[in-house]
Each structure stands twice: as structure tokens, then as C-alpha cells.
Write a protein that binds this DNA or RNA. Structure first.
Lengths: 129, 129, 129, 129
DNA sequence: GTGGTCTAGACCACC
DNA sequence: GTGGTCTAGACCACC
């Protein structure tokens, strides 16, 4: 389910971070669930264990995973909420900066609003499927 | 006016590219104008000349600057138009991706539309100044 | 009463050691008392029996428990005294090191002394309850 | 000046973190200073570059260092203040916990206070030298 | 030169 | 089995 593109410019450990977050967001892993061990995912994705470890450590620092040494990594109780909160704040920032640049480039407000509406329409369809 | 942050994750040569583009967009440099020499900017920004050169070459490849060998770099006639076109297409992409993630994180459409409207309102005020 | 946190950085066997010591200190187990069997505690805490065994062996080595083979573990006559002696010497060391670092960080002596006084005040209240 | 004990139970990267913090606290490195490069310190301490890198990344996350990619690591403007603040809060916690355990073990308040006073006396002498 | 990423693999404590 | 630390060394973009 989780996959990795070794030719991408986004680092593998970041792809793993994003992938795990996505799987928690979608509900594949729920709070309290144990996720695949470092070694398991390492062989599954054909990626060095150190790289997986780096991703898991970062997710632990973000409060999304907890490590039980000798037992494995577990999804924290508030993982889903944290992910949504973190995503919202960082993507709002990105969206605003992009909108400013579009405004500066002379793109009319209505065109940008329409772009947003289309995204949300497609999103709704996607969720209905 | 142009400045550089050595601690930023965006490479210095990219910061220079963005800075020059901004100055052309704002009208500080107009078509046909000569921009600061590599040496000048290198000293002014305390940046390695090779780094400035890399930025200027990239801007030349984009058709925003043209090099007069031995005389310096000049703003092309269609620089402003090119900049706006390039910005529009890349920032639309960025904006859409951000909007999708916000939709996934449960942010309602109206909240995102409102964000856009605020950006455009501030933008208008800013331009009036 | 005794509990264990699998996400703590302090190893589970150490948490068990500390927990048993605390229960003896408080008087829940007195000299000569039999403590829960390895199997019992293992089930109660949802911890691997080997881990409990490791803790009990360590407590036996410290002279706090004695094993009656086939019959279980018992609190030694001088358990309480040993615990207090061991705690005193190791915590004095910890306290001194912490005080040195606080001095280095510029925390005034009086502030640290006050901290100690507060701890002892709360302690007294706690014991009266 | 900075040194590392490979037989210590405290991880090498943690020793490096503590060592750099100490050097900043003492004033060997001041705000804005560049610290030794990863490779430099790696050969100097005979430690793998990855281990040094781990320490520097952690110090960056704590706001004590900033990385300028391609240039090196620099001490942040508020490094000293952060170090003192972080030390104070964590060591106060340690000190309180130790004091509680000493109180529980029956060590009289006056004995603990005296311990603190001695630490501060030695500290003063040390600073006078 | 600098830091960032990644591999391959060892060894450890812990469960 | 699990995660944590560390080595040795490669390759990359960037300065």
C-alpha cells in the first residue's frame, strides 16, 4: 500500500513520513495500532532500515507515533487530530503565499476562486466513490 | 532591496533568481535596463560570484535576461510578461495541491475561499500604497 | 497499584524494580511478606514473565527479596532499611549533579534552597494524609 | 577541548551535544560564530560523521545552532539564553524528584539543604579560579 | 570546501 | 523478535 519512488527529489524518509501520515488519515492505522516494524517496512519497501528509522523518529517527534523499545511503534491517541491540524496550518500558509504571487502576476481573483471550487468538487466526487 | 538569507533552505542562487524577478515585476528594472554586474551583486550581498553567475545564467535561459558579453546583463523586452506567465502556471499548480490537502484535512471550502478573498483584499490595499 | 508504561524510556524491568521498592517503602509489603508470583504479576501488568523475573532477580541480588525455590519471593527482614540506604546514596549524587548544573546556568542558591523547602513541605502534608 | 568517551553509557552523539552546549555556555563559541564542520569534528574526535551530524541536527532543532548548507553550522543569537533556560527547567525537575526520594528515604531537610550549600560554595570557588 | 541523504551492516539492550 | 547507536563510506546539491 505504501510505496516509495527512489527517483523522486523528495527524500525517501520524507516519502515514508507522508505515506504513514496518509495511511493514518485514511484510517488504515488507527490510534493504538502498531505499525510495521522498522525491519519489516525496510524489506517491504526495499529501503535501508536507517532511512525508515529516520522517518519514524520524525513522526515520533511530531507526536504521531510512540516507540515502545523492544516492542515496536504505535499510533498515538491524537495522531489523526495532530495530522489534520499540522496539515491545515502549513497548507494554509502555502496557499496564501501562492495566492499572493498569483495576484501579483495579474491573475484575477475570480479565476483563483474558481480553481479552489473545482478542487473541492473533484474532492467530493472522490470521496463518494 | 535585494537580500539573501544563508540559513534558508532555499538555495542562495534561487533566492537571487526570485529577487531579480521580483524587482523586474515591481518595475525597479525595466526592459532594456542593465542589472548589477556579477561582481557588484557578489560584493553587495556577500555571496560567492559563482553563485550570482549561476542565477544570471538561469535567468538568461528563461529569457528574462540577455547577456552582452563583456558588457553585462540586460532585461529582455518581454521579461515582465514571461515572469507573469511562468509564475501563474507554477503557482496555480501549488495552489491546487495545497487546496487538495486542505480538503483532505477537513477544512471547509468556504474557509479556503475566504482565505483567497483576504489575500486579494490585502493585495489591493498594498498596490494602492 | 503497581503499573508499567511501555512507552517510557526507563526499561520495564526497571519500572518493576522501582515499583516493588516503592511498595515496600510505603509498607504495602512488609518484611517476611510474600510478593506476587512472577506469573501473577506478568498477567496483571501484561508484561512478559522473563521481564518480571529479571526484576525479581535484581531485587534478590540487592538483598531486598529472597527466593524460596518453588514457593515464591519474600521480602527480606532488612529490605526497608536497604532501600532507604540505596536511595539516599544514589539520589544525593543525582541531586548534587543537578545543583551544579543549576549553579552553572545562573540559578541563584536561594532559589534552589527554596525548591528543596517546598518539596519537604509538600512531603510532610502528603504523609499526614 | 571537546572530548568523547566511547566506553560511557551516554551515547556519543549526546556527549557531543552536551560538549557543544558547554562550550557555548563557557563562551568558547559566541553567537554568530561558526563551529567546527561535521567532517572536522569527526576526524578531531575520531567519530563517524553521521554521529556528529546527528548531534548537530539535534542542536539545530533546539534552536542553538543554524545550518547554512554548503557553508557550515553557526551559533544562533539566543543560543546561550536557550541553553540556560533549558538546563534550568530540566535540572529543576531532576532536583525536585531527587529531593522527594530523599525525603521519602528519611533524609532530613537540613541535610539536603546543606548539600546544596556545599555545591554552591564549591561552584563559587571554581569560578574565582 | 559544506551539509543532507542513503546504503550495508554491526552490536547493543530490551521484550 | 523490537528499537537505538554507530561505523564506513558513497553520492548529491550547494557555496
Amino acid at each position: 500500500m505504501l510505496s516509495v519512488d527512489i527517483f523522486s527529489r523528495v527524500p525517501i524518509y520524507q516519502q515514508v513520513i507522508d505515506g504513514i501520515k496518509d495511511q493514518i488519515r485514511i484510517g488504515i492505522y488507527k490510534q493504538g495500532d502498531q505499525i510495521p516494524s522498522i525491519r519489516e517496512l525496510s524489506v517491504g519497501l526495499n529501503v535501508n532500515p536507517n532511512t525508515i528509522s529516520k522517518a519514524y523518529l520524525e513522526l515520533e517527534r511530531s507526536g504521531i507515533l510512540s516507540a515502545a523499545i523492544g516492542k515496536g511503534y504505535y499510533v498515538t491517541p491524537d495522531a489523526q487530530e495532530r495530522i489534520n491540524r499540522m496539515t491545515a496550518s502549513s497548507e494554509k500558509e502555502t496557499l496564501q503565499v501562492a495566492a499572493e504571487k498569483l495576484a501579483n502576476a495579474g491573475i484575477p481573483e475570480e479565476e483563483v476562486l474558481e480553481l479552489i471550487r473545482q478542487v473541492y468538487q473533484n474532492q467530493t466526487r472522490g470521496n463518494q466513490t
